[in-house]
Design a binder for these strands. Structure first.
Length: 505
RNA sequence: GGGCCGCUAGCUCAGCUGGUAGAGCAGCAGACUCUUAAUCUGCGGGGCGCAGGUUCGAAUCCUGCGCGGCUCACCA
């Protein structure tokens, strides 16, 4: 690799292929034709003819023009089989010297695995019952200059799989399937919400004040306006402005950006859906969430009981609902009469060497205990409700107990999948909470927005109808539905460190 | 950021307690008109992530660095 300097610019196999490309130039001129139009997707041939017998197919004498990437070649002396693949399926091609005459040697000498070819011929079934096109004419549409990974083991080096996802997709069918499923899930979610009168909107990705969540943002700069901007950490505040504007059911399904650690659960850019529904409460959204996710399970998995990694998950409704305080009593062993005993809570955390210096209230201590001891135990889908006010700056206070909010988070396999609440629409309370947050920032919490979004408060002053809103992490949901343990397996191009050009292989 | 593991031919891998790199697939040449990881014969290809060190001798040991994976920390 390092020696790819002037002496050996290309490896042996690439050179071989370049020679073949030159032969094509000599024969046809420009070797990248674009006038070949395949008439069918390969899957449609299989769908129509797979079930028929060889004799029935031969009687029909159907001719097809097909195109795809050559995935395998099995060469005999004067005949050969090749398998081509398109986005839908594969089909076998049969090349015979009898049929093709001189052109047979073009196949034999110039076609490599990886090339994209177009072919035309009559469909038949081989002795072994394989649906095959008996090629009458063909054309190399694109000469592939680089050898593909091995046919049997495929490509398994994760680094190469992520950096050169195109190769991963060519070679690993299971990877293709994951991303097809991802697309299907997203489509189903859109359909589900569209059917219920929601409108999809697009709000800014570049914010002058990062808000709507607690996270470190990416910063950027607009030259003409000479203005610093942040990539959004959440669309929440803009979506609620739209609700103020009169769009009563809106959603946005798109990227958020958070400048934080990378892990099997975190990618700096990730996909989230947020939706807002007026005249609904967080309780209505629990029902809706249950409906949505069971709908996805039925469509994608065909079952409400699934295996995810090492565990069996049961999505049969109704899902368990419990308050955060009940959860820490039940799962973290906090006695009910100690729930508000800050010293007790703090000591419990300290026993496990958890830093409590940033935690100044019972609510924050309760939340941390929940995160540290309870989350991981919530395997089957569980709604945890009534988060403390201090950790819910945008959520409506509970009328009976103003120390908590009308909020829930959905946990599955110990992971937060959704976060929702009845929206805080009291502009005065909202401003007070923003001010409280700013104090946290002054105490060193860099995840709090650097300044108050007064325009958002102003919007509330015009009147936000009673509304409930929710965010669902799409990547994590896709992980569940495709049984993947790493978020990078469900993101086409996960962020990786840059590699130097000399290291191109 | 810490810990552990990995990086050897285009790909998948082997290479023992240091002795100067090997297999399968892919490639090239040849045989073969029903194969399905086709088969058979022959051939070429890498100096072992990078940089140092120890040693008569390093892919193997040591140090540093790079990239990646897992994990802990971090994470509304």
């Amino acid at each position: 690799m390092k020696k790819m300097g002037k002496t050996t610019p290309f490896k042996e196999q690439i050179l071989q292929r370049k020679k073949k490309l030159e032969a094509l130039v000599e024969k046809y001129g420009y070797p990248y034709p674009n006038d070949f139009k395949p008439e069918v997707a390969l899957k449609s041939i299989r769908d129509k003819f797979e079930a028929l017998s060889g004799k029935e197919i031969e009687k029909k004498k159907v001719k097809f023009r097909v195109a795809g990437r050559v995935m395998a070649i099995r060469l005999f002396g004067k005949a050969a089989f090749a398998v081509i693949k398109d986005s839908t399926s594969t089909i076998q091609l049969f090349f015979q010297k009898n049929e093709l005459g001189d052109k047979y040697s073009e196949f034999k000498k110039l076609i490599d695995i990886g090339d994209i070819i177009g072919a035309e011929g009559i469909l038949f079934k081989t002795k072994t019952g394989e649906l095959t096109v008996n090629v009458e004419d063909f054309r190399i549409l694109v000469k592939s200059l680089r050898p593909l990974p091995e046919k049997w083991h495929g490509l398994s080096d994760v680094e190469v799989r992520y950096r050169q996802r195109y190769v991963d997709l060519i070679v690993n069918d299971s990877v293709r399937e994951i991303f097809k499923t991802r697309a299907k899930i997203i489509k189903l979610i859109r359909g589900f919400l569209d059917d219920r009168g929601f409108m999809e909107v697009e709000t800014p990705m570049m914010h002058s004040i990062p808000g709507g969540a607690k996270a470190r943002p990416f910063t950027t700069h607009h030259n003409a306006l000479d203005m610093d901007l942040y990539l959004r950490i959440a669309p929440e505040l803009y979506l609620k402005r739209l609700v103020v504007g009169g769009f009563e059911r809106v959603y946005e399904l798109n990227r958020n950006f958070r400048n934080e650690g990378i892990s099997t659960q975190h990618n700096p850019e990730f996909t989230m859906i947020e939706f807002y529904q007026t005249y609904a409460t967080f309780e209505n959204l629990m029902d809706l969430t249950e409906e949505l996710i069971t709908y996805l399970l039925k469509e994608i998995k065909g079952d409400l009981k699934i295996t995810y990694l090492d565990k069996e998950l049961d999505f049969t409704p109704p899902w368990e609902r419990m308050t955060l305080r009940d959860a820490i009593v039940k799962y973290a062993g906090v006695p009910e009469n100690k729930l508000f005993d800050e010293d007790f809570l703090r000591n419990k955390l300290r026993q496990y060497e958890i830093d409590t210096t940033m935690l100044t209230t019972a609510g924050e201590l309760q939340t941390t205990i929940f995160e540290e001891f309870v989350e991981e135990q919530l395997i089957n889908p569980t709604f945890v409700t009534h988060f403390p006010v201090e950790v819910s700056p945008l959520a409506r206070r509970n009328l009976k107990d103003p120390s908590v909010t009308d909020r829930f988070e959905l946990y599955i396999y110990g992971r937060e999948i959704a976060n929702a609440f009845s929206e805080l629409n009291d502009p005065h309370d909202q401003l007070e909470r923003f001010k409280m947050q700013l104090e946290d920032r002054e105490r060193g919490d860099e995840e709090v927005p650097p300044e108050i979004d007064y325009d958002y408060v102003r919007a509330l002053e015009y009147g936000l109808p009673p509304t409930a809103g929710e965010g669902i992490g799409i990547d994590r949901l896709v992980m569940l539905l495709t049984n993947q343990s790493s978020i990078r397996e469900v993101i086409l191009f996960p962020l990786l460190r840059r590699k130097k050009e000399e290291e191109w292989g």
